[in-house]
């Protein structure tokens, strides 16, 4: 399990945030929840479309939980379902994926934001812009002062910009998190942190990446020139996977922003 998931114990049951990478992991999540409370899991909120955020949906649905997702998120899940299943089968193996059927929310919500109240806890689901995947959302629990940021925020490790990511959208998402001003940010990967740490480890990198690449494009720099100019960022070298991802991120961000100019 290489991503964060979470759960919230309300007065009327448990709300799980992210269903895990497989049928089997979903069951393990439920077992872990049971070490904290006997209350049943009533809802599972999907905040993203990467394999490890939703491939466990099927198990929870079988147990009678409601899967809550915005239409945009569900649509991306459907689009990527086959490739994510193939990749998981290849990387994790048939055994690990046994029982896993890509299952999107049966009744996704056709709106860009949705609030639900479960047992005295308010959950605000908000789509700000496409981020790591199209249709990624933030989940704000105003009463708890917690934001589940999903793959908008990574701490400890660098994030990867993929061809389907929207780096400028990620910046907008990060700015929204700052406006929400939570006490705690639960990143998609890496330990839960305060806002300041999230800014230092992810927000600043994101903003700098987008603004520097944009400046290069405006100056008619070639891809190679931009990658060369931004090749080394000592401020972020401490992040895990920096060597593997930083230059790729500059490269990918250039291509994505160029296509939108």
């Amino acid at each position: 399990m290489n991503n964060n998931t979470g759960f919230v114990v309300t007065d009327d049951g448990v709300v799980v945030v992210g269903s895990g990478s497989s049928y089997r992991v979903a069951e393990m999540i439920a077992d872990a929840v049971a070490t904290v409370t006997d209350a049943p899991i009533t809802h599972v909120i999907n905040i993203g479309s990467q394999d490890h955020r939703w491939l466990g949906n099927g198990w929870f649905l079988e147990q009678g939980a409601e899967i809550v997702a915005l239409e945009r998120t569900a649509r991306t899940q459907e689009e990527f379902a086959e490739s994510h299943m193939n990749r998981s089968l290849r990387v994790l193996g048939e055994d690990a994926m046994a029982g896993t059927e890509p299952t999107v929310a049966p009744e996704p919500i056709e709106a860009d934001s949705h609030s639900l109240e479960v047992g005295g806890v308010e959950f605000d689901m908000m789509y700000v812009a496409d981020a790591h995947f199209p249709g990624d959302i933030l989940l704000h629990l105003p009463g708890e002062e917690v934001v589940f940021a999903g793959d908008v925020v990574y701490v400890e490790r660098i994030f990867g910009i993929h061809s389907w990511s929207d780096p400028a959208g990620k910046v907008k998402n990060f700015q929204r998190i700052e406006a929400l001003d939570p006490e705690i940010v639960v990143p998609g990967h890496g330990a839960a942190v305060d806002l300041e740490t999230a800014r230092r480890e992810a927000g600043e990198y994101l903003e700098r990446l987008v603004s520097e690449v944009r400046a290069g494009l405006e100056d008619w720099e070639t891809l190679d020139e931009t990658v060369e100019r931004l090749a080394d960022w000592p401020d972020f070298e401490h992040l895990l996977h920096y060597d593997q991802w930083h230059r790729r991120n500059v490269n990918q961000t250039y291509l994505i922003l160029e296509a939108r100019m």
Binding site: N2, A32, G160, V186, H241
Partner: peptide
């Protein structure tokens, strides 16, 4: 290059953030 992985039993120990909110701290492997 692959980050620090931890056994799944350790990852699946719920960490309390508030009275109600918990999370599972996944490995940072890529």
């Amino acid at each position: 290059a692959t980050g620090v992985d931890r056994p799944i039993e350790e990852i699946l120990e719920p960490i309390a953030l508030t009275d109600r909110v918990y999370y599972f701290y996944g490995s940072t492997e890529s």
